[in-house]
Nucleic acid binder design. Structure first.
Lengths: 342, 342
DNA sequence: CTGTTAGCGCCTTCAA
DNA sequence: TTGAAGGCGCTAACAG
């Protein structure tokens, strides 16, 4: 083991006290420039670096945030969404010198244990939840402990108490459906991910609103749900194809599902957008490179990350947030999957 | 601020000393069952939880590992590969009570600073690098400090000194190419990601070996490289289509690129596998749901994660590793993108 | 089997 | 502008 250089060594080397060295590190204003220079030089020479653990212990803060992913047992993690939020979070954290402690639990159980450990062990200053589900014991726990946390997405309960960063998914659903309608589509179907996800619900709600406004009847059999990724929306397509009056357009709640839907459609000899139009959400990297390129709602995933990072850091610093609900604007990216009106 | 329950409080409440309490936490064998019970009860009642920071400080270890992603500026992060390794790492870490500190740097510069902070600040016990590139100052730094680290992938230099977890990509390249040859293909092209990535190089090497063994000439103009994700292999395809003698099969170094290649091929009126066969690597979720489903080499990404986790933890515990190079086996998943010999 | 004592490396009053 | 002293919460000898 190589000698560890501590604050004391610097003190000794420069002939001043540990507290002075500490103040130089903090760049305290009432230390003379001369001593600062001297101390800094010694730190260089001896290769000093502050021990973060020791500092964290005394300041009672770690400047690290626990980021909780959905249970990683399922494949939903392969959704580029998460990498992208993480990137957004990271970019802001970096400039604020915060770190990400990533949760790794495979089950709800495991995740809960981890959060408990992080929080009770005072290993993190705050938590970002990258998902939102009903009856989440983690949320209850965090609320009860009054521990700083923010949700990316929309909480199902306590909407007005929990800080969350979200899109206006209802409006997004409405916008994209309206676009389909504008282009002459009338029999519009909806394929959503897991029915209990709030995103799905909101987007579907918007879809229905748009139909109503255009005086198009909302048909129950036109709305389908499929596991977020599983079998890529295959069953959904099969159901649709069984319908008597087949839709001429589909709103799909996630680009990833769209990929599966398109494959399946093709298998049945239907071409997008010639035979049926398709519009979805998220605008992940894939949306652009597959054939046909997806017309999709860009929800600014990266920005969702950045804003959640800003929010949690503010909370950790005990700054007040002006609002609990932070909305990231969306906009439609027009590509090839929608047949246009001539 | 609510009262923080410390070890001393438990000591006071139970009438024993802090060290006894500490020993109960560690489940030390020479504490009587009676005291253990008593202490544990008090911990329950007062809601005690060990402060991890304090413990870390004294034991000089954090049980957390810094995991470094590639510079997140580019889109390569959207490759599901990373989510999947992370999942593998997490699963093993969880059972060993280790945590992941995720690096978030957007540039090489930023990443280096972060690693330096983690390492010098003794905030992590080890590092896992999720990529490998030439002249990486991070590797030099880690090596110089003699700090425990493992690379997922193959280091370009010091192969025999750096612990790394990798596939036998040369063999994988050879295997998949041989499969193409077996099925009657002769004019086989290679499309790789960034030419300076070791994976690319290795897979291409294997591709060439297979050709040679089958006495098929290796043509320079048949090997192309494209940015890992950028424009999804479009230019690559254009180049191929300009060739006088067009290939009847392509080996693509990443499933993600394949998606772009297929789109492009279709745009030019070529169908996979009828007109041209395609085989690639990684077997990500997508490979299965796109049309045609990809014949691809499954490299067991999850397992790469697990093994790198095992390795770094061993190193942190000063256990010797039997070998520096840990190979995860691969196997071919046969699907629809290759035209079979009748 | 248990208590006492000394730190881990740092920051922060308080006093000079 | 600086130093001395105490403590953050925990563990690990060393005693007994």
């Amino acid at each position: 083991m190589i000698k560890i250089v501590t604050i004391k060594d610097i003190a000794k080397a420069t002939g001043c006290s540990p507290s002075t060295v500490s103040r130089v590190i903090a760049n305290n204003s009432r230390i003379s420039e001369k001593t600062k220079q001297k101390v800094r030089k010694a730190m260089q020479d001896l290769g000093y670096h502050p021990n973060l653990t020791a500092r964290n212990l005394v300041v009672q803060s770690t400047k690290t945030i626990g980021v909780i992913m959905p249970s990683s047992a399922d494949k939903s993690l392969q959704n580029p969404f998460f990498a992208e939020v993480l990137r957004g979070i990271g970019s802001y954290f970096h400039q604020e010198q915060f770190s990400i402690l990533l949760s790794t639990g495979q089950t709800e159980q495991e995740k809960f244990k981890e959060v408990e450990r992080m929080v009770l062990g005072k290993y993190v200053d705050g938590i970002i939840l990258l998902y939102s589900r009903l009856n989440d014991p983690i949320i209850d726990f965090l609320k009860e402990k009054d521990f700083p946390f923010v949700i990316v997405g929309k909480p199902l309960e306590y909407k007005n108490e929990i800080v969350h960063v979200d899109n206006d998914n209802i409006k997004a659903g409405k916008d994209i459906t309206a676009y389909l309608i504008e282009n002459g589509h009338r029999r519009i179907s909806f394929i959503g991910g897991a029915a209990d996800l709030v995103v799905t619900i909101d987007r579907q709600k918007g879809y229905e609103m748009a139909l109503k406004e255009a005086a198009i009847p909302v048909l129950k059999e036109y709305a389908l749900h499929t596991e977020f990724l599983k079998s890529g929306g295959r069953e959904a397509v099969e159901q649709i194809l069984k319908l008597e009056v087949k839709p001429d357009a589909i709103v799909v709640s996630d680009d990833l599902i769209s990929v599966g839907v398109i494959s399946m459609l093709e298998e049945y000899g239907l071409k997008v957008p010639e035979d049926i139009s398709l519009a979805s959400f998220n605008n992940i990297y894939f949306s652009e490179i597959i054939k046909p390129a997806l017309t999709t709602v860009d929800i600014q995933i990266y920005q969702l990350g950045v804003e959640s990072a800003k929010a949690i850091i503010k909370m950790c610093m005990n700054q007040k947030l002006t609002r609990k609900r932070i909305i990231i604007p969306h906009d439609i990216v027009y590509r090839e999957s929608v047949r246009l009106k001539k």
